[in-house]
């Protein structure tokens, strides 16, 4: 029965891409997985891509021992405040952040491994009413927090050993920032979506708020996942977790919208919808490169190729899926999907 649940099903006639089950891991000491991610771990001169799983009260690091065999290397205990999400720091090694809170994020902690002392540590990075957080390249972390009337958007950077360096403050927009995305290929550009459905662009070097552009009423409650600039235009991958389904256009899980930052005009480029015969709306998901994955209300995981503009693989709802994340991988090893089930099992699929 377990094997049947995990066999990926391709939508009829929608291509040859597929998901191949590589391995499963389950934390026997915890029944619920809140989030899953990957991080590079280097110890005794050996650098490996490890899996990180989070339960409500702890975060565990898993090392690959062989085909379908994982060893739990360490568990950080995080105390009374529940874990909400793992915040990976792209391209970093031995460092990962975690967001904790009740209904909202109340603090962010850095979890780290020190190869010098061969020890695992944790430190408090930020506290407050944190509305959005994202790990950036070069061991940086951006977060937005709300005081009574003011919003603070701040970047903190870490040394290789996890020490916090002087931060940078970004000019906040009037509206609450709901999500961030780095602009790929532009080291100093960052975008964010806001609670009133705008896209904002910052200059990370100067902290300037460069532009605010309304996304449009056709694309409500947008959350940005990925952004890149091409030929003078800004392309943003959006999801709409809180949008109402409309009869005319259904409820696509992801959309790509192109903006002209010079004029603030925009238009939709493509929408990622479920193939005919499948139902369910977007719950949560992840985008890496041209690949997007989402867990739907039906319990299905769906994968889309954003370049082909089509759904290319489905994990059926019998798997009772709760999480879908793309792993950090080498360019040569291809894409790897981490899919978490409600019983706490995490399945690794090669795409």
């Amino acid at each position: 029965a377990v094997a049947e649940e995990s066999i990926p099903v391709l939508p009829d006639g929608l291509g040859e891409e597929s998901l191949q089950l590589l391995s499963k891991l389950k934390d026997c000491s915890s029944s619920c997985v809140v989030d899953v991610s990957t991080m590079w771990w280097e110890a005794a001169g050996c650098r490996e891509l490890c899996v990180v799983t989070a339960s409500e009260s702890s975060v565990s690091l898993w090392k690959p021992l062989g085909p379908d065999h994982w060893e739990k290397v360490y568990t950080w205990q995080l105390g009374q405040i529940p874990v909400i999400q793992i915040v990976p720091l792209p391209d970093s090694c031995n460092l990962v952040c975690v967001a904790l809170g009740d209904l909202e994020i109340g603090e962010i902690r850095l979890l780290l491994y020190s190869s010098e002392t061969d020890s695992f540590k944790q430190s408090l990075v930020r506290t407050g009413t944190i509305k959005a957080v994202l790990g950036l390249k070069d061991r940086r972390l951006v977060s937005s927090s709300r005081a009574v009337q003011e919003q603070h958007v701040e970047i903190v950077s870490f040394s290789e050993t996890g020490r916090s360096r002087d931060g940078q403050t970004l000019m906040p927009p009037e509206e609450t920032v709901s999500a961030f995305a780095e602009v790929e290929g532009m080291r100093d550009a960052l975008v964010g979506t806001t609670a009133v459905n705008s896209i904002v662009i910052w200059n990370l070097k100067t902290g300037q708020l460069l532009k605010k552009m309304h996304i449009g009423y056709s694309y409500p409650a947008s959350i940005c996942h990925r952004a890149y600039s091409d030929s003078g235009l800004l392309f943003v991958v959006l999801s709409h977790p809180h949008a109402k389904e409309s009869e005319s256009c259904g409820n696509p899980a992801f959309r790509v919208v192109v903006f002209n930052p010079s004029t603030a005009r925009s238009r939709g480029v493509m929408a990622s919808s479920l193939p005919p015969g499948h139902t369910g709306r977007y719950l949560e998901g992840d985008v890496r490169g041209a690949l997007a994955a989402a867990v739907l209300t039906s319990g299905t995981v769906a994968v889309w190729d954003l370049l082909l503009s089509r759904c290319t693989a489905l994990l059926p709802p019998a798997g009772d899926w709760a999480l879908a994340r793309w792993a950090t991988t080498d360019a040569c090893t291809g894409a790897c999907l981490l899919a978490g089930q409600r019983d706490g099992t995490v399945c690794l699929y090669r795409y």
């Binding site: 200059n203 300037q208 460069l210 030929s231 930052p261 480029v269």
Partner: peptide, 23 residues
């Protein structure tokens, strides 16, 4: 997308917006 949809495009939009925006 055609240019007429989105208005005139600038390859240097990031530098231009940085020069115009308040410090």
């Amino acid at each position: 997308c055609s240019e007429s949809d989105l208005g005139p495009v600038s390859l240097n939009w990031f530098e231009e917006l940085s020069a115009e925006a308040p410090p």
